[in-house]
Amino acid sequence: MLKDITIGQFFPGDSLLHRLDPRMKIVLTVLYIVLLFVAKSIVSFAAVTVFSLILVFLSKISPKLILKSLKPLLFIIVFTTVLNIFYVKGTPIFEPIDILGWQFTITYEGLLTAVVMVLRITLLITTTSLLTYTTSPIALTDGIERLLSPLNAVKVPVHEFSMMMTIALRFIPTLIEETEKIMAAQKSRGSTFSEGGLIKRAKALIPILVPLFVSAFRRAEELATAMECRCYAGGKGRTRLKQYKLCARDYISLLTVIAVFAATIAINILLQGIVFAI
């Protein structure tokens, strides 16, 4: 079902992560992603993992939801694991296994790379999910708009982009619901969507797409009128309800992430060649 997708969803709350300035959260997430690629040794990965678990705990978001966000990527994770375990050359852990004439060797290095890759992907998804789970889409676009606002000087229409994002985010659930309704209605008239070849299937989409587009255009028109009635006249002279002011917790978070970052680099250097660096 279309409704099961949790990526990009927002879960309102009042945790420390919820209260962080969205601009800071975006910057920190970017930093964190870089960090994931900087970390080279198993020790630093352990540290980063612990740090991520602390973040999940701080967000007060149920770990179940976090796991759910990983579900769509399960295939990629499993695929990477298998690939790495069997294809990275190095010291075998045990004698090659013979299955139907195929020789399977699991190497120490392969196992390590697999663990690291899985951790990397998992942590990457977890933290970016945490960003969207704890930041309302509006705050997120707001944050992006404000971070990018210097670009206004070079005539990049930052406000217009963020307004488009805001409206898109607002209407995605509405349009998903509408799609489901239209599908059910066309099924009631005998439409089938999962039979026949590619061309037949593509054709079967017409009864869904046409009404969907018609409705999207109607909505757009009505929304435009409603926005005009509420005195919308572009980004010029607009103020915002939410004022973002960096406060102590934002700076502390920044310092923490920088500290973790520095520690990771230090570990990389200190443990070079000692503990399994990759």
Binding site: F10, S136, P137, I138, T166, I167, L169, R170, T174, R218, R219, E222, L223, A226, M227, R230, C231, Y232, A233, G237, R238, T239, R240, L241, K242, Q243
Partner: peptide, 26 residues
């Protein structure tokens, strides 16, 4: 149509839309 006049995803942010357009103090 109640759906086609709400601009922002979160209730209070939508209510703030008009005064924001008018440039009123936060």
């Amino acid at each position: 149509n109640p759906d086609n006049q709400i601009v922002a995803s979160i209730v209070e942010e939508d209510v703030a839309f008009a005064p924001e357009n008018l440039g009123i103090d936060p």
